[in-house]
């Protein structure tokens, strides 16, 4: 059976920036299978729907998730205590495909940064480009430094690192890299996909959509993409995505 639900034990919990939580979950059966860019679908007590959260990192026994408190569901989740069991349906979706030997830029914007960590880990020659609103929102910089050859950090207001957007940095290094993997707000992804297209570099993007089942049965998580014949279709982010080749996406 391909899918399973596990009660993962919360081993470690930390608020790494205001309202952003870092959870280490023990769930060996999931962590062994987890691929970069996949997500977990988390049941939150008292809520009808599960919450999709990306896998930030994984090893033999654990997965790590980093999430921002947005509404009630993530608030309740953030109140979990070390030792609590967390009900997850995972690993789900189709992740990044990374060629170990290539030089790949892993680009994350805001809360799109976490999934890029495990993705960058798959590559021997990784460059990270991380964008945040301001200094207070900067997360995971050290983790990326351990995994990547080069790490660029940019803030929108210049309060930390380079003043500007991830796309500004990408433009500067695009000729040195073989491809891009990115996750973040749609406008950022659109600009990045445009730069890659212009320079003829392969680009994979991770998209977000509101979800129900998380496995491709209920069809609520639609996004407009091109099928193999170039026709526009509604594909489902939970199953065909969340990672798409940028050319597949109708921007």
């Amino acid at each position: 059976m391909k899918y399973e639900i596990v009660n993962a034990t919360l081993l470690k919990k930390e608020e790494i920036a205001t309202g952003i939580f870092d959870f280490l979950l023990e769930c060996p059966s999931v962590s062994k299978k987890a691929l970069a860019g996949q997500f977990v679908h988390i049941a939150v007590p008292s809520k009808t729907l599960r919450r999709p959260i990306s896998i930030c990192d994984a090893d033999e026994k654990t997965i790590r998730i980093v999430f921002q408190v947005k509404g009630e569901g993530t608030k309740i989740l953030s109140e979990s205590k070390v030792g609590d069991k967390i009900d997850i349906l995972a690993p789900l979706g189709h992740g990044f495909s990374v060629d170990k030997s290539q030089k790949i830029a892993f680009i994350g914007g805001g809360i799109g940064v976490p999934p890029m960590l495990y993705s960058a880990r798959q590559c021997d020659n990784a460059v990270a480009i991380l964008g945040f609103r301001n200094k207070k929102m900067v997360i995971l910089e050290k983790d990326f430094q351990e995994v990547c050859k080069e790490v660029y950090v940019a803030t929108d207001d210049g309060s930390y690192g380079i003043h500007g957007f991830t796309s500004d940095i990408l433009k500067k290094i695009i000729d040195e890299i073989d491809g891009v993997c990115a996750c973040g707000p749609m406008p950022m992804l659109k600009v990045i996909a445009g730069i890659c297209k212009e320079h003829d570099k392969p680009c994979q993007v991770s998209l977000e959509e509101r979800m129900g089942c998380g496995i491709g049965a209920c069809l609520v998580c639609a996004c407009k993409t091109y099928d193999k014949d170039g026709n526009v279709e509604h594909s489902h982010v939970c199953k065909k995505g969340p990672v798409y080749n940028a050319e597949e996406v109708v921007w």
């Binding site: 809520k47 509101r210 979800m211 407009k224």
Partner: peptide, 11 residues
């Protein structure tokens, strides 16, 4: 092809 997203809201 169905409706454009978002197609779901929690209540």
């Amino acid at each position: 092809q169905g409706n454009p997203a978002p197609r779901i809201a929690e209540t």
